[in-house]
């Protein structure tokens, strides 16, 4: 079993689009040590001249899938790594990865809940690992996902989230669309704020564990609001991405 800090070769098993600018990659990793929902991996690309770049990506898949890891990557046009992943990488390609990494922003089913997950854009990725883990583990912890996207076409994992919410096992999703809403939209239509958080949190109560991942501004807003709403600081776990993984 490879140690987390050692680089290992992954083979790209599948590639599929989540939205026009977000793509998921399934990686075969025979030596993968297994991960916890919410952890990352580092991915390294090395050019022929030896120049190399590394990026950290959240793992999207659940720990129950052995030997396989899925990452979901937003294409950042000015980036060095994500355009390569989007435009060049195809099944059969090999990539260097190390991991799993991280022990702070993780949730295991035995930790229990209730759970409030708050995502901005591709910040949903580590939270999706938690939701997939929750479903696979048969956990019925009351769980809400508050998911902020710019428009209806940019909702990552939309179909799967709808399916998970329809399972009737205590999971519900609330969307907010900040820039563009389709006709007849009944969800939220503004940036996440304290009033919205209070509504989503209300059925879960003050002992809720919260995990927030997204752009810095969203994370700061949410973390401060959750404190004011009475959530103990040790139940407010956050992960910011700067101008994202590029």
């Amino acid at each position: 079993m490879a140690r987390p800090i050692e680089w290992q070769l992954a083979t790209v098993a599948a590639v599929h689009d989540e939205t026009p600018s977000v793509r998921s990659f399934t990686l075969d990793l025979p030596g993968w040590a297994g991960h916890r929902a919410g952890q990352h991996l580092d991915l390294r690309l090395t050019a022929e001249d030896g120049y190399s770049v590394e990026r950290s990506y959240s793992i999207a898949s659940e720990p129950e899938r052995a030997g396989v890891v899925e990452i979901t990557v937003e294409r950042i046009p000015s980036g060095e790594v994500s355009p390569f992943l989007h435009e060049v990488v195809i099944p059969g390609d090999r990539l260097e990865v190390r991991g799993p990494i991280g022990g702070y922003f993780v949730w295991d089913a035995p930790l229990g809940g209730p759970l409030l997950l708050i995502a901005g854009g591709s910040g949903v990725v580590p939270l999706m690992s938690m939701l997939r883990h929750r479903a696979r583990a048969g956990a019925r912890v009351p769980t809400r996902l508050l998911f902020s996207s710019r428009g209806p076409d940019e909702i990552i994992y939309r179909v799967e989230l709808d399916r998970l919410a329809a399972a009737g096992d205590g999971f519900a999703v609330a969307h907010t669309l900040t820039r563009q809403q389709p006709p007849g939209w009944t969800g939220y239509a503004r940036r996440v704020d304290e009033a919205m958080l209070a509504e989503v949190l209300e059925p879960l109560g003050p002992t809720t564990r919260t995990y927030t991942c997204g752009p810095t501004a969203l994370v700061e807003t949410v973390a401060n609001a959750l404190v004011r709403l009475g959530i103990p600081p040790d139940r407010i776990r956050t992960e910011r991405f700067g101008p994202t993984g590029t």
Binding site: G102, E239, G242
Partner: peptide, 17 residues
């Protein structure tokens, strides 16, 4: 410059090394 930062959890690989 805060927008150019990530959390410590984003550099766990480097720290583990």
């Amino acid at each position: 410059a805060v927008d150019l930062t990530v959390d410590g959890s984003g550099v766990g690989g480097v720290l583990a090394t």
